[in-house]
Computed example of a mutant assay.
Amino acid sequence: MRTVIKVSGIFVVFLIVSCVTVNIYFPAAEVQKAADSIVEDVRTKANDVQKETVPAPAPGPSSRLDLLKQFRFGPVNAHAAVNIDVSTPAIRGIRDSMKNRFFQLKPFYDKGAIGENNKGLVEARNIAGLNLQERSQVNKLIEQENKDRTALYQEIATANKLGSETVPQIATIFANSWRGKSQPGWWVQGDNGVWAKK
């Protein structure tokens, strides 16, 4: 009986000591760099879409302490080095589509008819000054643009194995880039939901 208790106790201690806690790391800084690059590309006049991969930060110099950490017992945080791949065929196709559409959207941004919301999408703002044909055109463009943006955010999550639960985070990061790279006089929606001209 004492042997069973002793073995059980050793087993329980072993389980407690060897527990590993894994924290999933969302590469926000890397996604922000990718978002800035994509938004800049979509809003430029260049016709070529470049393949881009945002590299992960290089690891620092190793030390004896780093070597000893390999043999550490107890909870450990796991952080994977992440390269944000934005060069898949699907992402390139979406970027091309958005880039071709931007010059149709730009006059409506300039007129104040549309703006960038805080969810990474385009939204109608003041269409009262547009004629019937322009209203129809702007509604169609908004629908196409938002469809592409939603697909882009999902594709980035899929291509980088970030999980579909990260799509709202990716959209929020892109919202920062769309708003940040908007021209003066364009409508942007702040994180608090308030609209203002940039």
Score class of each variant (00 low, 15 high):
N126L: 09
A124D: 10
N139G: 15
G93P: 01
Y153C: 03
E165D: 08
A151R: 06
I127C: 12
I91T: 08
N146R: 03
I156R: 06
Q144L: 11
V138T: 06
T166R: 13
F102K: 00
N146K: 03
D148G: 01
L141E: 01
G120I: 08
A78F: 13
T150N: 07
I156A: 07
G190T: 05
F103S: 09
R179A: 14
L130H: 12
Q183W: 06
I127E: 15
K147E: 06
I114S: 04
Q183H: 05
I170D: 08
G115C: 05
R72Y: 09
E116Y: 04
W187K: 07
F102Y: 14
F174W: 09
A175P: 01
V86N: 05
Q154P: 00
V86L: 07
R92P: 02
P168C: 10
K119H: 12
R95G: 01
L132D: 15
N77D: 15
A113P: 03
W186R: 00
V82S: 10
S164M: 13
N131V: 09
G163N: 11
E145H: 00
R149L: 10
E145C: 00
L67H: 13
L105M: 13
F174R: 04
A90K: 14
V76R: 13
K111Q: 13
D191H: 02
A157F: 02
L162Q: 01
L67S: 13
T166C: 08
N117H: 07
L132Y: 12
L121D: 14
A128F: 12
R135Y: 05
K161P: 00
N77Y: 11
D85E: 11
S87T: 11
A157R: 06
R95Y: 02
L105S: 02
